[in-house]
Amino acid sequence: MSRIEYSAEIAELLGRVRRRPTAGWPWRPGEPVPEGLPVKQSWGWLFVPDGRVLTLVNPKDGVVSLPGGSLEPEDEGDPGAALAREAGEEAQAVIGPPYYLGYLYDRVGSANGGHECARVRMAAALHAVGPTAPDPASGRHYRRLLVAPGLAVELLGWGAPGLRQARAAVTTAVVRLGVPAAANETIEELPPGGSVFPR
């Protein structure tokens, strides 16, 4: 097994990571969202060419997340548009066309006023990130880490269901985006000034 490489600064950041309790939403891989079930959120596995994905760390509370969030009226019901917008707002990310992976069924509707809803998951290429800036919706100033998908599941605290979701994302990314099935395992924080990734 190869050693995972990361800097002392990243080690300090990872030491403060806090995982949210798992919600237990059932994962519906590849299934279209049923008619009548509202899509309230869209989150993305955003891949760079070496197979790593973008994760966001809130330095205030240590919570790790994938880029994404709630659909807004300007998204016109399109989860892909919501993902592109949210990734830009949260991570200053520029992404390629998103590919649908499936959805999580939120039966208690915590994102929908207590009514059942779907939380979509997508995969896309990460083309670039701009200079770091606070999320306009929350004021949060996220740290941006590239990690292997399996490590992302660990940092997110999603367990076995998250690993199944990551596998679906990797399978799609290998076929659609040409990334390697075995990702680079180096943990890298993206610089405040941003980065561009070859297409």
Rank of each mutant, 00 (worst) to 15 (best):
S2G: 14
E5W: 05
Y6M: 10
S7Y: 04
S7H: 05
E9K: 13
G15S: 08
G24Q: 08
G30F: 12
E31N: 04
V33R: 10
P34A: 04
E35T: 11
G36H: 01
K40E: 10
W43N: 13
G44M: 02
L46A: 00
L46D: 07
V57S: 03
D61L: 00
V63I: 15
G69L: 00
E72N: 11
E72G: 13
E72L: 15
D75A: 13
E76I: 07
D78V: 15
P79A: 06
A82W: 03
A82Y: 01
A82L: 04
A82T: 09
A84C: 05
Q92W: 11
A93P: 10
G96S: 10
Y100K: 05
L101Q: 08
V108K: 14
S110E: 13
G114D: 05
E116G: 10
A124V: 10
H127W: 15
A128F: 06
S138V: 10
R144C: 03
R144Y: 02
A148G: 04
A152D: 02
W158E: 11
G159D: 13
A160I: 09
A160C: 01
A160P: 07
P161G: 10
Q165V: 07
A168N: 02
A169Y: 06
T172N: 00
V175P: 00
V175K: 14
P180L: 00
A183E: 08
A183T: 03
T186R: 14
E189A: 08
E189L: 01
L190W: 08
P191Y: 12
P191T: 08
G194N: 01
V196W: 12
